[in-house]
C-alpha cells in the first residue's frame, strides 16, 4: 500500500512541473515565429482561408487563453492538427504516438543490449583491474564516450553498404535479404515466415541499435567498473574471501549482485539523453520516429506538433525517473521507497 501511495505522491509532484514546463515551452513555441508564414507566401490563397486557419489554430487569441485551449484539448485527446505543408492537416495525436512507438522500441532494444554488455565488460575490467583487458575496455569506453553519436551512425551506415555488397557477392542475399543491412525506415518491411521475419528485422534494426548501444555502453561499462571496484573493497566481500569461498563465488554471488544495482537504474535516469541519441540516430537512418517529427516541426514552425512532442517526452522522462527510483528500492533492500 505504501508503494501505491509513493507512486501517487510522486506523480502528483510531477503534475505541476509538467504544467509549468508545458506553459514555458508553449511560450517558446509561440515565440518561434508565425506558423502560417509559409502558407501566407503562397501566391493564390485568399485572406479568408488564412483567417479561418488562424482562427482554427487559435492564433487570433491571446497567449494564455490559447494555452488553456491547447491544454484542454491535450487532456481530452485532441492534440490539434499539424499545419506543415504536405501533412494535410494531419491530427497530431496519432502522428506523435506512432513516432514515439518507433523510437521507444529502438531505445529499449539498444539499451538492454548496452546494459548487458556494459555490465559484463565493467565487471571484467574491475576484476582484472590494471590488466590489458581493463585498458582495452577503458580505451573503448572513452573513445565511444567522446564520439558524437551521429558520426558513429554515419560510419556504421557507410560500411553497411560495403557489407551488403559482400553479402551479395557471397550469394547469401537469398537468405539474408537484399539489402541485408537496411539503412532506411523499417516501416514497409514485409516478411514471409518466422526465419525471414527474424532476418529482416535484424537487418533493419541492427545498425541504429548498434549506434545507440555503443554510446550507452561506454557510460554503463565505466559506471559498472567503478561500482564493482567499490564493492570489491567492501568488508563483507573481504569476509566472504576470508571464509575461504572461491574467487568466482565471491565475485558472482556476493560482489556482482550488489554492484549491479546502481547501473540498472542508470538507463532510467539517463532517459532524456538516450532519447537525444535516438533522435540523432533516426535522422541518419531516415526513420520516422520522434527525431524526424521534431526536426520537421521545428523547421516548419508547427506549434501543435512541437507541443505534443515535448509533453510526450516530458511525461516519458518523469515515468522513467519514477521507474528508476522504484527499481532502486526493489534491488537494494537498504533503500525503502515509500
Amino acid at each position: 500500500m505504501n508503494l501505491v501511495f509513493y507512486i501517487l505522491r510522486r506523480l502528483a509532484i510531477s503534475v505541476p512541473i509538467l504544467f509549468i514546463g508545458s506553459f514555458l515551452v508553449f511560450l517558446m513555441v509561440a515565440g518561434a515565429g508565425d506558423p502560417l508564414a509559409e502558407i501566407r507566401n503562397q501566391p493564390n490563397i485568399n485572406p479568408e482561408s488564412i483567417a479561418a486557419l488562424s482562427h482554427q489554430l487559435g492564433l487570433d487569441k491571446p497567449l494564455v487563453p490559447r494555452y488553456f485551449d491547447w491544454l484542454g484539448g491535450f487532456l481530452t485527446g485532441d492534440w490539434g492538427i499539424s499545419i506543415a505543408q504536405g501533412s494535410a492537416m494531419e491530427p497530431v495525436y496519432p502522428k506523435i504516438m506512432n513516432a514515439f512507438w518507433v523510437t521507444f522500441r529502438l531505445i529499449i532494444g539498444a539499451e538492454i543490449l548496452a546494459l548487458i554488455l556494459g555490465i559484463a565488460v565493467g565487471v571484467l575490467a574491475a576484476v582484472r583491474q590494471y590488466t590489458t583487458i581493463d585498458y582495452v575496455a577503458t580505451t573503448l569506453a572513452f573513445l565511444f564516450f567522446s564520439m558524437p553519436i551521429f558520426c558513429v551512425a554515419i560510419i556504421l551506415k557507410t560500411y553497411a553498404i560495403d557489407i551488403n555488397i559482400v553479402v551479395n557477392q557471397l550469394g547469401w542475399s537469398d537468405v539474408l535479404g537484399n539489402p541485408f543491412l537496411r539503412t532506411t525506415s523499417p516501416e514497409s518491411l514485409r516478411a514471409d515466415g518466422v526465419g525471414d521475419f527474424v532476418v529482416t528485422y535484424i537487418g533493419a534494426f541492427l545498425l541504429p541499435t548498434l549506434s545507440i548501444m555503443f554510446i550507452s555502453f561506454a557510460a554503463y561499462s565505466r559506471f559498472q567498473r567503478s561500482s564493482m571496484l567499490e564493492t570489491l573493497n567492501m568488508d563483507y566481500v573481504r569476509t566472504a574471501r576470508a571464509k575461504g569461498l572461491s574467487g568466482r563465488r565471491v565475485i558472482f554471488r556476493h560482489a556482482f549482485r550488489n554492484a549491479m544495482i546502481p547501473v540498472t537504474t542508470l538507463f532510467s535516469v539517463n532517459f532524456a539523453s538516450v532519447i537525444t541519441g535516438a533522435i540523432i540516430t533516426e535522422r541518419v537512418f531516415n526513420w520516422n520516429g520522434m527525431g524526424t517529427v521534431l526536426v520537421e516541426a521545428v523547421n516548419k514552425n508547427d506549434p501543435n506538433v512541437m507541443m505534443g512532442w515535448v509533453v510526450v517526452i516530458a511525461i516519458a522522462v518523469v515515468l522513467a525517473n519514477l521507474v528508476a527510483d522504484l527499481l532502486y528500492g526493489i534491488l537494494d533492500p537498504r533503500i525503502r521507497v515509500g
Binding site: T276, N301, I313
Partner: peptide, 15 residues
Amino acid sequence: LIVPQLAAAAILVKV
C-alpha cells in the same frame, strides 16, 4: 531536466 537539451535548444536557437 524533463525536456531533452537537444529539443529545447533546437526550438530556442530557431527563435
